[in-house]
């Protein structure tokens, strides 16, 4: 019998997605030296939905949802669930403020917008820190327990952080590819329906940036795969009670099918193969576009399988 089931693993998936997409967008644009933070803006606008959906799922899973405010009456640094409540709340609050400021910035042009731009820049850094905390929290929540699969090693937070970043990149790419392609003649650009988001004219996301994100996603998946192999090796070699049973259950037992097909194949092998199939990342080409989209869908589904297998597996 499992105390935590679908609402919890979907919630962890959504919270990771929100934190991961912002983390990826923020770093990509800072390191690439883009002054206009289109991708970061997109991530913060997109991220509110999964974060709020996640909170609703968490509340629905409570035995007494109407007592949810009791969570806000306590600040317990030892309890990851208490810390997670505050982190998620702060993440959503900052995201909402940043969204309002972006809209205001867009409507009022440069001169009036400059202080707001600076304020949003500061909030952006704060949100980056909260995104790291949010991604980590999804793993620390499980790891601070007495379940061998979750708590025996310190590998669940790294696994969930890596998975959150790959999920975040995948959802960004999927959104850009599905919502934004504009084909004029022989070229395709990725333009976001900015009017819906900020009231300004359309933005263009550089195709090269999307291609680089895809490349980054492959490396993050490799990191995730290394951590997963480490976890399996630890389960196999640990003397901790329940560790060997957890390994058997994942590899040969009740969860073998979702583990091998969902986690190993869908979340890792297939997206890596897709990445190798498109070395140039020429997203303007229709077949490459399709491969990128398929890869993103696989990563998103695989990450959900990963959380389901780990959450359920820890309790069996």
């Amino acid at each position: 019998m499992t105390t935590w089931s679908a609402p919890i693993y979907v919630y962890l998936w959504l919270a990771g997605m929100a934190g991961g997409s912002y983390f990826a967008a923020f770093l990509a644009e800072r390191f690439a030296g883009y002054n206009q933070r289109r991708l970061t803006q997109l991530a913060i606008q997109m991220g509110v939905l999964p974060a709020v959906l996640g909170v609703l799922l968490l509340l629905a899973d409570l035995g007494n949802p109407l007592r949810f405010w009791h969570l806000l009456a306590e600040f317990n640094i030892l309890s990851p669930m208490s810390m997670g409540t505050w982190i998620l709340l702060a993440w959503v609050a900052i995201a909402v403020v940043m969204n309002v400021l972006y809209r205001y910035e867009g409507q009022h042009g440069e001169p009036g917008g400059r202080p707001i731009h600076r304020l949003n820049g500061g909030l952006g850094w704060l949100q980056f820190l909260f995104s790291i905390l949010l991604m980590s929290y999804t793993g620390v929540l499980l790891a601070t327990s007495n379940r061998a699969l979750w708590a025996g090693s310190a590998l669940i937070p790294p696994l969930f952080v890596a998975s959150a970043v790959s999920t975040g990149i995948a959802v960004l790419i999927a959104y850009i590819l599905v919502v934004a392609p504009v084909t004029t003649g022989k070229t395709t650009e990725y333009r976001l329906p900015a009017r819906l988001l900020t009231g300004s004219t359309e933005w263009a996301i550089p195709t090269r940036l999307v291609g680089r994100l895809w490349e980054a996603e492959a490396i993050v998946i490799l990191v995730e795969l290394v951590v997963l192999i480490g976890l399996v090796a630890w389960l196999g070699s640990s003397a901790m009670a329940g560790a060997r049973e957890a390994l058997n259950m994942l590899t040969f037992g009740a969860l073998a099918a979702p583990f091998w097909v969902g986690v190993v194949l869908l979340a890792s092998i297939v997206p890596l193969a897709f990445d190798m199939m498109s070395p140039g990342k020429e997203l303007a080409r229709r077949e490459v576009f399709r491969v990128a989209l398929a890869s993103s869908v696989c990563v998103l589904l695989g990450a959900l399988f990963l959380r389901a297998v780990i959450v359920i597996g820890g309790q069996l």
Binding site: A28, M135, S136, P158, V161, E215, V220, V223
Partner: peptide, 24 residues
């Protein structure tokens, strides 16, 4: 619990450097 938070933060740091700093 401290080690678990740290392991998450370190992974985020590794990912920030490995693909993002390198690629972008």
């Amino acid at each position: 619990v401290g080690t678990q938070w740290l392991s998450g933060a370190i992974t985020a740091g590794v990912i920030a450097i490995l693909p993002f700093w390198l690629l972008f």
